[in-house]
Nucleic acid binder design. Structure first.
Length: 497
RNA sequence: GGCGCAUUCGUCUAGUGGUUAGGACGCAAGGUUCUCAACCUUGAAACAGGGGUUCAAUUCCCCUAUGCGCUACCA
């Protein structure tokens, strides 16, 4: 049988990095065996679902390179089918009408309210004590016909257990006495999550459900629905969750943008790097390597490599240096400096374009220069943003001077105000404006002036790039070329700052 | 409260009935250097606690603690 998996996010808000990882694992799992990866938008909660969110999910998957097969399924489109199925189960006596008046949801913390109610019951609640559970068909029909509102609940057997073999957690079972007669259809006719999921998974012929561990107990309920429908359940595998540094839930309300996938795209992450990082959160190939491209991830991936305990996404909210997980940051830098240059160039192009620094010549007459320059500066960059920020002086005459750099490297050595233009004159005479020739000239110049080479170099760096840090100055001279180097060495702009 | 799942350096993780418990990020020190990265070397850093089983337990079992999840006419 063909392996068919689905990623089934609900379109409320942006794509969460935890969801993104779930999508990734589904993708890797099925691509390994050549199966299908399907996308289903679970938009049954009409109040909270938005089109914008659906867009962000699709964009996010595209960014990560997780291409899905077939048409997107919108769960809300199937609502009437779900309703029919609930009615069918009612008809077959596998479900019953519950005429208990609907409780108004308390606006307080719902989870707290549930836990509190459970405490009142001392855990003694009998899950089968619904007064309408054993109402005769005639009576039930009569009440329904008279217009009394009702929900439809699954009739869970008095005794027994459900069990399944989880791909990650192993054999799991749960006693029926722990499972209430779950509602399948609300009194307003809307199908509920567990029913909708099972129906759609059957309809889509899903063979393997890979989802977050927060669904572990839902799975038992869903298996009961499969049984009631006379369908074989798919295989299940549950993934550990991604937690915040305090080991609590990672949520938008509490943690803001760090949990949103788009944040990483917008912050200049290389998709391949972030994908690689995500793959390593809760999964390991059992070897010491950590850098994997997509094909390698597909090849290495297995459910056995998934950890059973939750992973902490480590970041420090108030520290800009560690605004997100250090390892993600490191991996991004690692990708930027080591990935094949031809893969990086389009990403740099996009970045320069959005910063209005792109010139068509970079793909034409200046192609060689552009590639060499990108290769030079990428060595110490952490994000793609750096190409338009720290790297700005390589692509524009309009760049800022860092005051600290000027103070430390320029104004501390007043002689440089005369020396640097003098050096410019000297450089102007260099025929072949390349590294080795420049080295001789600059070394000699420093010697003549009786100063350390570093003073000259750092001063030059400050006026040429506006920064105190950067590549070797000889390489910078070469990259900027004679004309720009000379011009900037002579410029007094930095001195007047 | 009940039920379930989990627990190896700060974080991500490897690993085994007998190991100096390995790697990565981060951190610290040193080297290199025109700066900063990178790079190289080194260092600090972990088997939650208590009982068993066993010649031997980080590894198997039980209890406790802690965390997380579910416990909805949310998804």
């Amino acid at each position: 049988m063909e392996t068919r998996v689905r990623f089934a996010p609900s379109p409320t808000g942006y794509l969460h990095i935890g969801s993104a990882r779930t999508a990734l694992f589904n993708y890797l799992y099925t691509r390994k065996v050549g199966g299908k990866f399907l996308l289903r938008i679970e938009d049954t909660d009409l109040q909270r679902s938005t089109e914008e969110s659906t867009r962000s999910i699709i964009e996010g998957l595209a960014w990560l390179g997780l291409d899905y097969d077939e048409e997107i399924v919108f769960q809300s489109d199937n609502a009437s089918k779900h309703r029919e199925i609930a009615l069918k189960l009612l008809d077959e006596g596998k479900a019953y009408r519950d005429f208990t008046p609907k409780e108004l949801p308390s606006d307080a913390n719902i989870k707290e309210a549930i836990a509190e109610r459970a405490r009142q019951n001392q855990g003694e609640k009998n899950m089968r004590d619904n007064p309408f559970r054993d109402l005769s068909k005639e009576e039930s029909d009569k009440k329904a016909e008279s217009g009394e509102p009702f929900a439809i609940r699954l009739k869970v057997a008095e005794s027994g257990k459900t069990s399944f073999e989880d791909g990650v957690y192993g054999f799991l079972e749960r006693d029926y006495s722990e499972i209430e007669d779950l509602v399948l259809l609300r009194s307003d006719g809307h199908p509920l999550y567990n029913l909708a999921v099972v129906c759609d998974d059957i309809e889509m012929q899903i063979s393997d459900v890979v989802r977050g561990q927060d669904h572990l107990t839902n799975t038992h309920k869903q298996i009961l629905i499969y049984e009631a429908l006379g369908e074989a359940p798919p295989r299940f595998a549950h993934l550990p969750l991604i937690l915040a540094p305090n080991k609590g839930k990672l949520s938008k309300r509490k943690h803001g943008a760090v949990v949103s996938l788009t944040t990483y795209r917008d912050a200049g992450f290389v998709a391949a790097a972030f994908r690689n990082f995500l793959a390593l959160l809760g999964w390991s190939a059992g070897e010491e390597r950590e850098i994997y491209n997509l094909e390698e991830l597909i090849k290495k991936f297995s459910l056995e490599g998934i950890h059973r305990s939750n992973a902490v996404f480590n970041f420090q909210e108030n520290d800009p240096r560690h605004w997100t997980d250090d390892k993600a940051l490191w991996m991004n830098a690692e990708y930027i400096r080591t990935m094949p240059l031809e893969d990086l160039l389009p990403l740099v192009k996009d970045e320069l374009k959005s910063a209005k620094l792109w010139r068509e010549e970079y793909e034409d007459g200046d192609k060689a220069w552009f590639e060499k320059t990108v290769d030079l500066i990428r060595q110490r960059f952490f994000t793609l943003k750096d190409f338009s920020q720290q790297g700005r002086a390589f692509f524009s005459e309009d760049f800022d001077f860092d005051q600290a750099a000027i103070d430390k490297n320029l104004k501390k050595f007043p002689d440089l105000q005369a020396w640097l233009p003098e050096l410019a004159d000297r450089l102007e005479t260099v025929e072949d404006f390349t590294h080795d020739n420049l080295e001789t000239v600059v070394n000699q110049f420093a010697e003549e002036k009786g100063t350390k080479l570093g003073v000259i170099m750092n001063g030059a760096r400050s006026v040429l790039t506006g920064l105190a840090v950067g590549p070797s100055m000889l390489a910078v001279f070469e990259a900027l070329g004679k004309e720009k180097s000379v011009l900037r060495l002579k410029s007094q702009i930095a001195w007047n700052q």
